[in-house]
Amino acid sequence: MDEIAIHVREAYKVFHKQSLFPWNRKNGHGEKKRVVAVDSISFDVSKGEIFGVLGPNGSGKSTLIRLIATLLLPDSGAVTVFGHDVVHDRIAVQRLINRVSVEASFFKKLSPMENLIFGARLYGLSAQQARVQILEILTRLGLERSTISKPVEEMSRGMQQKVAIARALLTRPAVLLMDEPTTGLDPRSKREVQALVRELRDQDETTILLTTHDMVEAEMLCDRIAIMDAGKIVALDTPEKLCAMVPSHNGRSPTLEDVFLELTGKKLIEEDDVE
């Protein structure tokens, strides 16, 4: 049996738009905004699997990643990484994971080298070890050596994203959480990142949880895909089996995009029809 890397059981997360101070809170007129971001979802990801999460904006993908990344606490349910609970065993989980998000967040005045050494030290690496690895990873990502000592703010969005990926790889995570890592990248950079994702799984057996809006990317990279809508998983299977869920149109085999629209978009049309 495959080893379970990520285990999510009935995870539930709701956000209340409410002030810390009681006198600022709305009074019983239903004005207090309540958003169920993750609605009792369950799934397992095996070690070495590339698991995709698709969903429209606001469907709960990033919240799910933050729950696994220990950046949010679930209201109920359980999330574990290689058996370690994200709430009760925070540091053990954090040693195993790293994350690449859609915003490549850095100290913008510092160089990639300074930013990456800072990140490496937080994970217990020495500067000497880190320097060697940084050069190796950035070269692997196709980043020129001359850019390594320039401030991050002088780099293009694509280059910054590569540095963000390097930051995650530097700690050799067993689980890599990638939240729309290729959004905003040019086609070439996108392909390089996609090749790297495959390489990480094939060579290092890294477990990857990937959220994306790019259906082709999801179909190409992921072993299994979960489609989320309004905080719930509406479908979960291999790309092939997901495609088989919808009928073909005009003799054309359905794509993942057709499945996505069928499961998320079509529902909205039906609601409009009712009105």
Binding site: Q94, E103, F107, Y123, R167
Partner: peptide, 12 residues
């Protein structure tokens, strides 16, 4: 700087 999540995610 927008780095808070990365720092608070570190195993320290």
């Amino acid at each position: 700087e927008g780095t808070i999540e990365y720092t608070l995610m570190a195993p320290i």
